[in-house]
Amino acid sequence: MIENYEKKYRALVKQEEKIKNFTDENVRFHLLQDLHIAKVKTRKKASKNLSASDRVYLARHPKRPKTKTFVETLLDEPIYFHGDRAFGDDKSIAGGIAEFNGDPVTFLATVKGETLEENLKYNFGMPSPEGYRKAIRLMRQADKFNRPIITFVDTPGAYPGSEAEKRGQGEAIASCIECMTGLKVPVITVITGEGGSGGALALAVANQVMMLENAVYSILTPEGFASILWKDSNRSEEAAEMMKLTAEDLKTFGVCDRIIKEEVCFEKSEFDNNLKRVKLAIEEELKRLKRFSEDRLKHLRMQKFRRIGRGF
């Protein structure tokens, strides 16, 4: 479904480019205006009745802004820190200190690239153990200096390679989760695109887990889910519907605490309004969480996860 709207949209963009070459300024101006309205309308129409697999499509869209954009537009002058002080530096997890509305915060983000070249550099957003160990180091640092932590999550999952196994992928994720359950500072997570498996959870044990409306969060990629259960990764659309991975479904489970409204975008430049909404949401939640004492923050976070699945 969503693909059809995108095709329509791309056709409009093509037309727009042709019209830009028109010499008559008056005609050009009016035509461009019409086209702009048509584009907005297409996007609005596209945002209606989105299915789960549509949202998976949008969450993975190559033109969707990646976490780097979020870090760089929402936070002021980020300073990036590198390395786990043991083995190396994992580029798929970025972290450091920045200012948010004038206050120091620690940020962490799983990084996907925008181009193939970048993706190769960032390993398609699939972190290795050193990445999680760097995250633990930076979170402990934030705890020590009483800085709130903001994490941005967009990853298909932790890297399933033999080197990662040798260096203890499981242990790294486990320790990262354990570390987050014990933090005494406000922790906010924004799932911006794909939240896949333990690799995403390792950075998402937060007081407030927020999701963009078209982000998804699941135990496994729909492809992986389909291939495990039906031995057929082509049935991923069916799997996506079944897995309850959209923000709305997750809110009913108490896994997601807040959904950030989102306009459907096919172009990075159109995403500004969404970014503003994310900023507002972080602002509100940070203000709310800052009122709690250290022990209370820790307790509330634990209780939130303690409750999930209790009734089942």
């Binding site: 989760i177 699941s218 135990i219 309850k244 991975l245 896994v255 999930i308 089942f312």
Partner: peptide, 11 residues
């Protein structure tokens, strides 16, 4: 049990 199983890791 999907995402609920994932959350048991944190719990």
């Amino acid at each position: 049990e999907g995402i609920l199983s994932l959350m048991q890791m944190a719990k």
